[in-house]
Design a protein around this nucleic acid. Structure first.
Lengths: 130, 130
DNA sequence: GTGAGTGCAAATCTTTTGCATGTTT
DNA sequence: AAACATGCAAAAGATTTGCACTCAC
């Protein structure tokens, strides 16, 4: 039987207040604000728990910390190459993308992810151009 | 001025003999076979060096160790969800994919990666079906 | 009371780095 | 000899895990 713990509650409450695509560390920092004694593992375990329940989706980001996405449906992401933050891309999901593969070489394809690279508006105005 | 060290040589020689998309650890193990005293850092540093020279490309894989790709041009990859290995996908690169984005929201897009998920032929025959 | 959940510390895994030493040019 | 590269050990960053304890049911 699953239990309602204060910690679990706070993780979800904080999550809703934070920007989407927060890292475990950002979530931990924010949760700590309301419950300083909480353990980092508890945050990780609860994030995993929400993922298992389908209320959250962990997006593994190449080369950096994973982020937690409150939108659980398939969609694409951009990573800002300056600040590393992750944003949603305003683009239709392409379920048929697997059909563009010429020869599957015996593979059974089950899905795909697209990660765009770019520079976010904040970083464009803040940084030296390039 | 760049130098020819035995270690650098062995890393490249071994790389050519290994399957493409080997991890640093696999490369290290293979290199060690020919030069047991080599340091893990030296392998990492040389792999990075070849990447800097454009002779190799590091592909950062979500949730697992990076792999080194001898094909430096843009192309897409599949990860086998059973064994975690990375393979090339036989599909044309889509340079125009950024144009499918409806509203860039001020982002400047510079590129993209696609990672497919699937089950490789080896794992299909070896494992229980699903 | 029982077991799911917590806190802590330690472990894991991958990669990087500081520094003294060695080697190539 | 000077610059570059190596080896080692330690550090770093992200996440997981073992274990004893606690608290929600």
């Amino acid at each position: 039987m699953e239990r309602n713990t204060i910690q679990r509650d706070i993780v979800m409450t904080v999550l809703k207040k934070l920007n989407n695509h927060a890292t475990a560390d950002e979530i931990y920092a924010a949760v700590r604000h309301e419950h300083p004694a909480i353990s980092r593992s508890t945050v990780y375990r609860n994030l995993q728990w929400f993922c298992d329940k389908g209320q959250l989706r962990k997006r593994e980001i190449p080369g950096q910390a994973d982020v937690y996405d409150q939108i659980c449906t398939n969609h694409y992401h951009v990573r800002c190459s300056r600040c590393g933050r992750i944003f949603d891309v305003d683009m239709d999901y392409i379920p048929a993308l697997e059909q563009a593969i010429k020869d599957p070489h015996g593979f059974r394809f089950t899905g795909h992810d697209i990660i765009f690279t770019g520079v976010c508006p904040d970083c464009q105005s803040r940084d030296e151009p390039l």
